[in-house]
Amino acid sequence: MATGGRRGAAAAPLLVAVAALLLGAAGHLYPGEVCPGMDIRNNLTRLHELENCSVIEGHLQILLMFKTRPEDFRDLSFPKLIMITDYLLLFRVYGLESLKDLFPNLTVIRGSRLFFNYALVIFEMVHLKELGLYNLMNITRGSVRIEKNNELCYLATIDWSRILDSVEDNYIVLNKDDNEECGDICPGTAKGKTNCPATVINGQFVERCWTHSHCQKVCPTICKSHGCTAEGLCCHSECLGNCSQPDDPTKCVACRNFYLDGRCVETCPPPYYHFQDWRCVNFSFCQDLHHKCKNSRRQGCHQYVIHNNKCIPECPSGYTMNSSNLLCTPCLGPCPKVCHLLEGEKTIDSVTSAQELRGCTVINGSLIINIRGGNNLAAELEANLGLIEEISGYLKIRRSYALVSLSFFRKLRLIRGETLEIGNYSFYALDNQNLRQLWDWSKHNLTITQGKLFFHYNPKLCLSEIHKMEEVSGTKGRQERNDIALKTNGDQASCENELLKFSYIRTSFDKI
Rank of each mutant, 00 (worst) to 15 (best):
Gly227Gln: 14
Tyr259Ile: 12
His59Cys: 12
Arg297Lys: 09
Gln245Lys: 10
Pro79Val: 04
Gly142Asp: 02
Val144His: 00
Pro336Arg: 06
Lys80Pro: 01
Ile84Lys: 00
Leu29Val: 04
Asp261His: 14
Glu168Ser: 15
Asp72Thr: 04
Leu89Phe: 10
Arg110Trp: 03
Pro70Leu: 10
Val144Glu: 00
Leu99Arg: 00
Glu314Pro: 02
Thr85Tyr: 03
Val126Leu: 14
Ala254Leu: 14
Tyr171Ser: 10
Asp247Ile: 15
Ala230Gln: 15
Val206Lys: 13
Glu124His: 15
Arg69Cys: 10
Ile62Ser: 00
Lys80Ser: 12
Asp261Pro: 05
Cys264Gln: 01
Arg162Glu: 07
Gly241Asp: 02
Leu155Tyr: 09
Arg298Phe: 11
Cys219Glu: 02
Pro336Val: 11
Arg279Leu: 09
Lys176Gly: 14
Gly142Ser: 02
Asn202Met: 10
Asn43Pro: 02
Lys294Leu: 03
Val265Glu: 02
Leu136Ser: 00
Cys35Met: 01
Asn150Gly: 12
Ala230Glu: 13
Ala190Trp: 10
Pro270Cys: 04
Ala254Val: 04
Ser213Ala: 03
Glu124Asn: 07
Gln303Glu: 10
Cys293Asp: 09
Asp248Gln: 12
Asp165Met: 05
Phe103Trp: 04
Ser323Arg: 14
His48Val: 13
Asn195Gly: 10
Leu76Gln: 02
Asp86Gln: 14
Cys328Leu: 01
Glu49Met: 06
Asn257Ala: 07
Thr107Arg: 01
His226Tyr: 13
Cys315Ala: 03
Phe258Leu: 11
Ser324Met: 09
Asn257Leu: 03
Leu136Thr: 02
Pro334Arg: 15
Asp248Cys: 02
Leu332Met: 12
Cys264Arg: 00
Cys268Gly: 00
Val121Gly: 06
Cys182Pro: 04
Ser143Lys: 08
His291Arg: 09
Cys268Ser: 00
Thr229Lys: 06
Phe115Val: 15
Asn43Tyr: 07
Val121Phe: 05
Lys148Gly: 02
Glu180Asn: 10
Thr329Asn: 06
Cys196Lys: 03
Pro79Phe: 04
Phe275Cys: 02
Gln299Met: 14
Cys293Tyr: 02
Phe205Pro: 12
Ile201Met: 14
Asn295Pro: 03
Gly192Pro: 07
His236Lys: 02
Pro36Cys: 02
Cys196Ser: 14
Asn175Lys: 11
Thr250Gly: 07
Phe285Glu: 08
Thr157Ala: 13
Met321Pro: 15
Met38Asp: 15
Gln204Met: 06
Ser213Thr: 07
His290Val: 13
Val34Lys: 10
Asn257His: 07
Ser324Glu: 14
Cys255Ile: 00
Ser112Pro: 00
Pro269Met: 04
Cys196Gly: 08
Gln276Phe: 13
Thr199Asp: 12
Leu63Ile: 02
Gly262Ile: 05
Val34Gly: 03
Cys153Leu: 02
Met83Leu: 13
Arg145Ser: 07
Leu90Val: 12
Pro220Gln: 13
Asn242Pro: 09
Tyr30Lys: 00
Tyr118Asn: 04
Leu131Lys: 00
Pro104Met: 01
Gly241Leu: 02
Leu128Asn: 01
Leu64Lys: 08
Ile146Val: 08
Ile62Pro: 00
Arg162Asn: 09
Leu120His: 00
Ser112Leu: 13
His212Cys: 03
Val305Gly: 08
Val144Asn: 02
Met83Pro: 00
Val173Ser: 14
Leu152Tyr: 00
Leu88Phe: 08
Arg69Ile: 12
Val34Leu: 08
Glu57Ala: 07
Cys239Trp: 00
His291Pro: 02
Arg297Cys: 06
Lys310Ile: 07
Ile306Gly: 07
Phe123Ile: 03
Cys215Glu: 10
Ala198Leu: 09
Gly32Thr: 02
Leu260Trp: 05
Cys280Pro: 05
Ile146Gly: 00
His212Ser: 07
Ser77Phe: 15
Asp261Gly: 03
Trp160Thr: 01
Arg298Leu: 11
Glu130Val: 10
Ser323Val: 06
Asn257Arg: 05
Leu81Ile: 02
Asn322Ala: 13
Gly203Ile: 06
Cys209His: 02
Pro249Asp: 11
Leu174Thr: 10
Cys280Met: 00
Asn179Gly: 14
Cys219Thr: 02
Ile139Pro: 01
Cys53Trp: 00
Val55Asn: 00
Val93Thr: 09
Pro197Val: 13
Lys224Ile: 08
Gly111Ile: 00
Ile306Asn: 01
His290Ser: 11
Arg74Lys: 13
Glu97Asp: 09
Arg69Met: 13
Asp86Phe: 00
Gly37Lys: 05
Ser296Ala: 10
Asn308Cys: 01
Thr85Leu: 08
Lys129Ile: 08
Phe78Val: 11
Leu99Ser: 01
Lys129Phe: 14
Lys193Val: 02
Lys224Ala: 10
Ser166Arg: 11
Gly95Ile: 02
Tyr87Glu: 00
Met38Pro: 01
Asn117His: 03
Phe285Ser: 03
Cys335Arg: 02
Tyr273Val: 03
Glu168Asp: 04
Asn195Leu: 10
Glu33Gln: 06
Lys193Gly: 11
Val34Asn: 06
Leu47Met: 06
Gln299Tyr: 08
Tyr272Val: 05
Cys35Lys: 00
Cys186Thr: 07
Thr320Gln: 10
Cys328His: 01
Ile222Ala: 09
Leu76Met: 09
Glu147His: 12
Asn42Lys: 04
Cys234His: 01
Cys252Lys: 01
Ala190Gly: 08
Glu130Thr: 08
Ser143Phe: 07
Tyr134Gly: 15
Thr140Ile: 05
Pro270Tyr: 10
Asn257Tyr: 06
Trp160Ile: 01
Thr211Arg: 04
Asp86Ile: 01
Met321Trp: 14
Met137Gly: 11
Ala156Arg: 08
Asp169Met: 15
Glu49Gly: 05
Pro269Tyr: 02
Met137Glu: 09
Leu155Asn: 04
Asn149Gln: 03
Ile122Glu: 00
Pro187Glu: 13
Ile201Gly: 05
Tyr30Leu: 09
Cys243Thr: 00
Asn195Lys: 07
Arg279Phe: 15
Thr189Asn: 05
Asp72Ala: 01
Asp169Phe: 11
Ala190Ile: 06
Asp178Cys: 08
Lys224Gly: 11
Ile122Trp: 00
Ile146Ala: 04
Leu240Met: 05
Gly111Leu: 01
Gly318Trp: 10
Thr320Ile: 13
Thr107Val: 08
Asn202Phe: 04
Leu131Pro: 01
Tyr30Met: 01
Pro70Cys: 12
Cys239Ala: 00
